[in-house]
């Protein structure tokens, strides 16, 4: 069996934990996230007849005075970068984190998730951003942790990208 470590990153409150919870069965409670800054879950998925055991590190949200510890990124084979579609400032945070990931890790696949796609009224991300990301070879998924839209697809996509 292939095992891969992936990190779910993004600004605080973008829905990282909700997205992960949609995808996996959780062994540990969310209290680890607030105390240790990370909660680890796993999910075995099948990619082209290959069993892949995804170890999903749900890292706490990046805040001004609470940076993501780089030690948690070490050894990751892929990154899910989550943006809150209703908060444009989370795009900047995501780009910041992206830069740090590049510094810390060798080239690893990064997928952008524009979350809260169910909140169309409050949506404030321009299509231009999506095009910009896609043009720089960064796949983008419009997801909703609430409805489950594209959640599984995005995890499968990162798994495929890592193999």
């Amino acid at each position: 069996m292939i095992q891969k470590k992936i990190c779910v990153l993004g600004a605080a409150g973008v829905g990282k934990t909700s997205l992960t919870a949609q995808f996996v069965y959780s062994k540990f409670s969310d209290k680890y996230l607030s105390s240790m800054g990370v909660k680890i879950d796993k999910k075995v998925i099948d990619i082209d007849n290959t069993q892949v055991n995804l170890m999903i590190w749900d890292v706490h949200g990046e805040e001004k005075y609470k940076k993501i510890p780089t030690s948690y990124l070490r050894g990751s084979s892929g990154i899910l970068m989550v943006i809150d579609g209703t908060r444009p400032d989370t795009v900047t945070v995501a780009k910041d984190i992206h830069q740090r990931v590049r510094d810390e890790l060798e080239e690893v696949p990064i997928i952008y998730l524009l979350n809260k796609s169910d909140l169309q009224d409050a949506w404030s991300i321009h299509d231009g951003l999506i095009q910009e990301l896609e043009s720089s070879n960064r796949p983008v998924f419009l997801t909703s942790a609430k409805t489950g839209t594209n959640v599984e697809n995005s995890f499968t996509a990162i798994a495929k990208a890592m193999l």
Binding site: F28, G37, V38
Partner: peptide, 17 residues
């Protein structure tokens, strides 16, 4: 065991940091 293993690593990193 795989989750425990990852968590153990995270705990080590956490304490270390």
């Amino acid at each position: 065991a795989d989750i425990v293993s990852s968590m153990l690593t995270a705990v080590q990193d956490f304490i270390h940091d």
